[in-house]
Design a protein around this nucleic acid. Structure first.
Length: 428
DNA sequence: TCTGGGGTCCTAGGACCC
DNA sequence: TCTGGGGTCCTAGGACCC
């Protein structure tokens, strides 16, 4: 064993009840009150404070089912306000970047820090990170430190629950790891979802420790695939997932929405799809990609048991890659026209762009059909204007005007505290 | 009345080739 | 009558994550 094989040390920093914490920033009076944030369309809970969890409201609970409970307990409920959350997230990440030579932004509310080789008391260091983030951004975080990402997740999980830990748990010692793993049930292990935990339980595996100690690799491979084996190794302190500092380009980009009402006419369906295409292709151009396949789907309400369910899906392969919104709308619409059925109450539609190539390396001769070079220029100008003036300033007529039949519901939206001049909080 | 959205990875199985 | 086998590529579907 050479010295180059020294143990990795990762810290997972995770914002507590992130969306709720963002909403609380500008509403200090709800600091110790139950708060929840709803998914798009005000559908179900996607973020809850401990006070709301204590009332028995679960992740993913549909709002309408717990509305009475929320009202009677004065729960502060918000529609999701993603421009606010991404803005706050950027601030948190900027603070975290000061504490490690490299960090991976894993999601809007989580980051892995590489603390390998750091000559410090790591628990004290964790507390310093925590205090700084809280002081500079107002967001409370929890920190788990361990030799693998999966163990760091578990350390973090325990840090959130344990009073004594006060938000920071370090699991570098194997005996400590084992004590911790025995307290974590199998479904709470990162990478083991609902289905897989049921399978593991039939094998007698109830805790993270049971899984770590399970010897029959073939059974794990067969039931959980390669990923299950990697998770098992990670629990044993073997690093399988490295820190990914540069996020790779997306391999596909999708955009879909559930409608607030239901849509029965082709015109509205087409408008919604044109909007999703506009959104997705803007993101695609931002990462400098061109797509060669376009998928479109639309379906009825799966929750309506008295209706015959309808699912329509189609995939279009282009003769040459493109990033031209107009062209993508055209193809998406022609697919959609075939999917549309009279008499169906459509509840959701979406598009997926895929089969990406880089926009710099277009080998002319390879493709049968190439974009007019003026198209890329036009798209670039449109993107620039929309970035400056607000998205949707310039858009295709295909996106429609003043048609709300397919739009989202967002009745409990907080103000644009940080992204609109008109709604900046006032200081008195 | 009312149940989100955006991603990744892996495997099995079919098509095709020699 | 007898009807191979191995490799590769692609896709759909399922599982997971936040």
């Amino acid at each position: 064993m050479g010295s180059h094989n020294k143990q990795k040390v990762y810290a997972l920093v995770d914002c507590n009840s992130f969306f709720c914490s963002c909403e609380r920033l500008f509403r200090p009076e709800i600091r110790n009150k139950p708060v929840g944030v709803l998914s798009n369309n005000d559908g179900c809970f996607v973020s809850r404070t401990p006070e709301l969890k204590a009332l028995g409201v679960k992740m993913g609970d549909p709002y309408f089912k717990v509305r009475r409970l929320c009202e009677s307990h004065n729960v502060h409920v918000f529609s999701s306000n993603f421009s606010l959350y991404t803005n706050i997230s950027d601030r948190v990440m900027n603070v975290l970047a000061r504490f490690a030579p490299s960090l991976e932004i894993y999601s809007v509310d989580e980051a892995f820090l590489d603390l390998t080789g750091m000559d410090e008391d790591l628990v004290a260091y964790g507390h310093r990170i925590r205090e700084t983030v809280l002081q500079w951004t107002g967001i409370p975080v929890s920190i788990g430190i361990a030799p693998s990402k999966t163990l760091a997740k578990i350390a973090n999980h325990i840090g959130k629950k344990s009073e004594k830990a006060n938000g920071v748990v370090c699991l570098l010692d194997e005996r400590l790891q084992d004590v911790a793993l025995k307290r974590v049930s199998i479904e709470d292990v990162w990478g083991i979802g609902r289905k897989n935990s049921v399978k593991l339980r039939t094998l007698g595996i109830k805790t993270a420790y049971d899984f770590k100690a399970f010897k029959n690799i073939k059974v794990i491979q067969r039931t959980l695939t390669k990923l299950g084996r990697m998770t098992q190794d990670e629990l044993r302190g073997i690093t399988c997932y490295e820190l990914e500092e540069c996020r790779p380009k997306k391999k596909e980009i999708l955009c879909s929405r559930t409608f607030s009402g239901s849509v029965v006419d082709l015109k509205s369906l087409r408008e919604s799809v044109a909007n999703y295409v506009t959104n997705a292709s803007e993101k695609m151009r931002a990462q400098r990609s061109l797509c060669a396949t376009i998928e479109v789907y639309c379906h009825s309400d799966p929750h309506k048991l008295n209706e015959v369910p309808y699912y329509g899906k189609d995939k279009v392969k282009l003769l040459g890659p493109t990033s031209d919104t107009r062209k993508i709308i055209k193809y998406a619409w022609s697919a959609l026209d075939d999917l549309f059925k009279m008499g169906v109450c459509f509840k959701k539609a979406g598009v997926k762009l895929g089969d990406f190539s880089d926009d710099e390396v277009i080998q002319q001769s390879l493709f049968e059909e190439l974009d007019d070079p003026r198209s890329a220029k036009l798209m670039k100008i449109v993107d620039e204007i929309n970035r400056r003036e607000g998205s949707g300033m310039i858009r295709s007529m295909a996106c429609g005007v003043d048609n709300d039949s397919w739009k989202m519901r967002r009745e409990k939206l907080s103000r644009r505290y940080v992204t609109g001049w008109a709604q900046l909080p006032k200081c008195s």
